[in-house]
Design a protein around this nucleic acid. Sequence first.
DNA 1: CTGAAAGCGCTTACAG
DNA 2: CTGAAAGCGCTTACAG
Lengths: 328, 328
Amino acid sequence: MSNGVNAKDVARLAGVSQSSVSRVFFGGASVSEKTRQKVLAAAEELGYIPNEFARSLITNKSKIIGLVMKGIKNPFYPQVLKEFTVAFKKLGYSILFVHTNHDEIQKEDVKMLLHYNVAGVIITDAALSLNLSEDFKKFKIPLVLFNRKVEKQEFFSVCTNNLEASRQIAEFLIQKGCTDMVYISGDRNTSTSLEREKGFFEVVEKHQLPYERYDSDYSYQGGYDTTRLILKKGRIPSAFFVANDIMSFGVLDALREHSIEVPGQVKVVGFDNIDMASWPIYNLTTWEQPISEMVDETVEYMLAEIEEYTGATGNVEIRGKLIKRKTT
Amino acid sequence: MSNGVNAKDVARLAGVSQSSVSRVFFGGASVSEKTRQKVLAAAEELGYIPNEFARSLITNKSKIIGLVMKGIKNPFYPQVLKEFTVAFKKLGYSILFVHTNHDEIQKEDVKMLLHYNVAGVIITDAALSLNLSEDFKKFKIPLVLFNRKVEKQEFFSVCTNNLEASRQIAEFLIQKGCTDMVYISGDRNTSTSLEREKGFFEVVEKHQLPYERYDSDYSYQGGYDTTRLILKKGRIPSAFFVANDIMSFGVLDALREHSIEVPGQVKVVGFDNIDMASWPIYNLTTWEQPISEMVDETVEYMLAEIEEYTGATGNVEIRGKLIKRKTT
DNA sequence: CTGAAAGCGCTTACAG
DNA sequence: CTGAAAGCGCTTACAG
């Protein structure tokens, strides 16, 4: 008896058929104004709420979007979660949240999503195997990689223009007089870190300047430890380009501990422009990822694919911009 | 046709009835080992996935927990979200994530949850009206307020021992020689902020020491602005007790900007013990909220109520502990 | 242990 | 525009 009252009850009270009740609530069907009023009044009186399960069962479409997320500790992602939730809610969709510990999501991570016959799936901060993606293709479930992409364009992905961004960051630092630069990478099996590295070094090489790469992991601790390691060697580069903001904070804190002046002795540029980047203590120069636009683009694709599945792939890039603050 | 293959297909291939297929997958029923094997083999071959909607429709129970969250910008909450997701997943439950902008959640926030006939609802960082809670009661949906409670115990709530915590914090600061203290509150319509205030001042008063309260909003900016305001008055208290960590960082940054030494001139104590509290730049003394235990307690209640609804109310408090770091 | 059948609450051709 | 009926994919008494 679901939550007590069903369409039949409403129909009885309104003196119409169950079909009419359904037509009023499902929309798109023709109902006389008189019937509509009777039904709505009866529904109001009884506190009728259509059962979404029954609806999904018969339409074979759910109004649930699966959102798979790994890096919840990076404030960038909660923000993304929030924006997706708000955007989809307006469209009548709910978010089924899945947390994964895996860089490449596993069958077990998405099993539930298939059980619920989700309308679409968004994966952030993680990749997935072609193998697993077959399941989605088979069931015609649209899929978007958010802030990740895959070499061969087997998926639809939405990112910021990482390559161009890191090129601009390099140009900017060089113009500021930096000659000796370090890139601190995120997880090197993520497309975002690799692209940022590529664009950055491309320009640095073009200018025939020395550079070095240190591998880290997108975490505060990673940025902090890596910087201490570098300083231990007695080496102070003229600039750090760091693969995300949260690592940059670790870098800045390590520099502060060694009383190295920023931006006097070293300049630091991050990536993401999370809220904390504007905190006075950090005041970090960084690349703004336009989350809202990236979300909008994702939602638009999703909706189109839900409407009519094509399985279209491709990498969409949304232009971000350099936010200049006090670390450069 | 859901995701292509249903129980009937499996039954046909396995040479058994659909009922048997159901018995194998739903569990709790007696099936011969031979039948089970035949069914599992057929299911494997066809890639059968039971349709959760049909299941929920007939059992009138969903395996979905609604999680309503407001303060996603405070890193405490993403952590809570993650732990709930992991804990419930182990039990076969999925998380339907709802974001609200309201201090007191609204009908529209939870409408979807009723549509999906959720097995239970957890509300974090927000309150709800008695009015709205009637809906949950009516549908016998168990409800937990997480990290919030309501005066008259109309709900089941899980918190840390805020009152005792803030008393201990006061004792600790007094013992450290602080004589003139300030409490920076969070939103004053939240039980957590009020309890922390109450316990703290209770002890301070007992010692007949002067104190002052400044109202803020649980945000970094709030802590920062409030502290600047206080300093502008030319006043430097001997300690700040701040209603949460993220505000404490604002406090510390404002103090740093004014070159006020911590803990030399002023001591600062936060609340939550989020990851950032241990960052070397902050190294904040704070009260650890035992998230995992709070989550476990919530899950346990939920499960019991799902099993057999009683609508039991009450406030459960989980002991946290003082984490002493460099700001005291 | 197993199968045939009813039924969960809906949507949607089909007639009228 | 409207109603009667079929059916979505399951679970679960009911018989055997």
